[in-house]
Amino acid sequence: MSEGSAEGSAAARVALSLSPSDDRTVDAVDSERYRAYIRRAHAGPVAVGEEWAEFVSRGCGTTRDVELRVESVEGGEEIGEGTEFAFLSRG
Results as ranks from 00 to 15, higher is better:
residue 38 I to F: 02
residue 24 R to C: 00
residue 12 A to Y: 12
residue 21 S to Q: 05
residue 18 L to Y: 13
residue 6 A to R: 09
residue 37 Y to P: 02
residue 22 D to G: 12
residue 23 D to Y: 00
residue 9 S to F: 11
residue 26 V to G: 01
residue 30 D to V: 04
residue 29 V to Y: 05
residue 6 A to L: 06
residue 25 T to A: 14
residue 40 R to V: 06
residue 27 D to E: 11
residue 5 S to R: 13
residue 30 D to P: 00
residue 41 A to E: 12
residue 41 A to N: 05
residue 22 D to S: 10
residue 21 S to M: 01
residue 39 R to F: 10
residue 4 G to S: 12
residue 28 A to D: 03
residue 23 D to L: 10
residue 41 A to Y: 06
residue 26 V to L: 14
residue 28 A to L: 07
residue 20 P to D: 10
residue 21 S to R: 06
residue 10 A to W: 15
residue 38 I to S: 02
residue 36 A to P: 03
residue 18 L to M: 15
residue 19 S to C: 12
residue 24 R to D: 03
residue 15 A to V: 08
residue 4 G to Y: 12
residue 36 A to D: 09
residue 28 A to R: 01
residue 26 V to E: 05
residue 7 E to S: 07
residue 34 Y to P: 00
residue 17 S to I: 11
residue 39 R to V: 02
residue 8 G to A: 08
residue 22 D to K: 02
residue 25 T to E: 10
residue 16 L to E: 04
residue 11 A to W: 13
residue 41 A to P: 01
residue 22 D to F: 01
residue 15 A to I: 04
residue 5 S to F: 15
residue 19 S to Y: 11
residue 6 A to K: 07
residue 24 R to F: 04
residue 26 V to Q: 10
residue 19 S to I: 01
residue 40 R to G: 08
residue 31 S to R: 07
residue 14 V to E: 07
residue 18 L to H: 04
residue 34 Y to A: 05
residue 29 V to Q: 06
residue 27 D to N: 05
residue 20 P to M: 04
residue 27 D to P: 05
residue 34 Y to E: 03
residue 28 A to H: 01
residue 30 D to C: 11
residue 13 R to S: 15
residue 8 G to L: 13
residue 34 Y to F: 13
residue 11 A to G: 08
residue 30 D to S: 10
residue 32 E to A: 07
residue 41 A to K: 03
residue 32 E to T: 01
residue 15 A to N: 09
residue 5 S to M: 12
residue 30 D to E: 07
residue 36 A to K: 00
residue 33 R to S: 13
residue 35 R to T: 05
residue 25 T to C: 14
residue 32 E to F: 06
residue 12 A to H: 15
residue 10 A to N: 14
residue 18 L to Q: 07
residue 16 L to H: 03
residue 10 A to Q: 15
